[in-house]
């Protein structure tokens, strides 16, 4: 049992990440520097935050394709509330985040109340939220934010990028909730067998509603950090982010069928992808080559994990 535990997906992934780090560091002396690694953390934070909530979503056996659109919608609303409506910026940020969270709640409502499969529900809201962002903004950008606002996306605390702190704290909270609380156990139970979970008294719908709302919240939080990092809002922000997040979560060993997965795995998946993107670029591989490598690693890592799994499971 202990040997088998050693070969959990996360362990394999950790080993793979370390190997990748060593190889990449030997390919480029610019890779393994504190400066670069911290900077990569900065670039990773938005996808990272979304992936945390996505882990919960996928553990329940669901999926949320609308996160990229929620990010875009929140960003646009932030700009519109501040610039066009004339709210003070802190109020605009808060209100935009409330709206983003609400968008996640609507996803949850459609999925639980009307029992629409999550893939379809969020496919529809993917188009809807992006469309709202385009319509509300009329495709115009809002720029010229005050200097203090850029702290969220560009500032540092104790030498570490601000959003890396946010990301770190959020990871700890997410890991604690999923691993240690009744809520986490309910999440796994729903993913493993929803009907059984319902019969054993778990409040399935309420749990799911919370999770999709949290997914909206994380996307909204990521939006604020993103806007602060790039100093402007655009209605096409976050396009395609959902696939990046899902890739990280799945690479992290979360089963797409639900019931299995950890926050640690997701974090490792994120780190591995970001390290590959950055390290390969630094060692002179072009972007199109990097995409191919990431595709191969994704299949390869899951393949290895599945093989060990089968040996263990018999």
């Amino acid at each position: 049992m202990t040997v088998a535990k050693l070969f959990r997906h996360e362990t394999i992934l950790a080993i793979l990440t370390v190997i990748a780090m060593i190889v990449l560091a030997s390919l480029s002396d610019k890779f393994f520097t504190l400066d670069n690694l911290l900077n990569q953390g900065r670039l990773m934070a938005e996808v990272g935050l979304i992936s945390l909530a996505m882990t919960f979503v996928i553990v329940t056996g669901g999926i949320d394709l609308s996160v990229g659109s929620i990010l875009g919608l929140t960003a646009i609303l932030l700009g519109v509330f501040w610039h066009n409506v004339g709210l003070p910026l802190p109020a605009a940020i808060l209100l935009a985040m409330v709206c983003g969270t609400f968008a996640g709640w609507v996803n949850g409502l459609i999925i639980t109340r009307f029992s629409v499969p999550p893939l379809i529900a969020t496919l529809a809201t993917l188009a809807l939220y992006r469309g709202l962002a385009e319509g509300i903004s009329e495709a115009r950008s809002v720029r010229g934010y005050p200097e203090w606002f850029f702290f969220f996306g560009q500032g540092e605390v104790l030498g570490v990028p601000f959003q890396l702190w946010v990301m770190g704290i959020a990871t700890l909270i997410a890991a604690a909730i999923l691993g240690l609380t009744p809520f986490g156990r309910a999440t796994y139970a729903i993913g493993a067998n929803e009907v059984a979970a319902r019969f054993s008294g778990i409040r399935v719908d309420a749990t799911k509603l919370w999770i999709y709302t949290a997914s909206g919240f994380c996307a909204a939080l990521a939006a604020v950090i993103f806007v602060s990092r790039v100093t402007t809002t655009r209605s096409d922000m976050g396009t395609g982010l959902e696939l990046d997040a899902i890739t990280a979560v799945v690479l992290g060993g979360t089963s797409i069928f639900g019931g299995r997965g950890t926050i640690i795995g997701t974090a490792l998946g994120l780190i591995l992808i970001q390290a590959l993107k950055n390290g390969l670029a630094l060692s002179g591989v072009k972007g199109d080559g990097t995409i191919v490598v990431i595709g191969l690693v994704l299949i390869g890592a899951i393949l290895v994990g599945a093989l060990f799994d089968r040996n263990r499971g018999g």
Partner: peptide
């Protein structure tokens, strides 16, 4: 995509190029 373009630029800055040529996806974001 503004985000990916920024990531590419960031990586090349780290890798230590002497010069950057760019065509911006967004004038402010970049």
């Amino acid at each position: 995509n503004i985000d990916e373009q920024i990531t590419f630029l960031d990586n090349y800055i780290t890798s230590g190029v002497d010069g950057i040529l760019f065509a911006a996806n967004d004038p402010v974001a970049i």
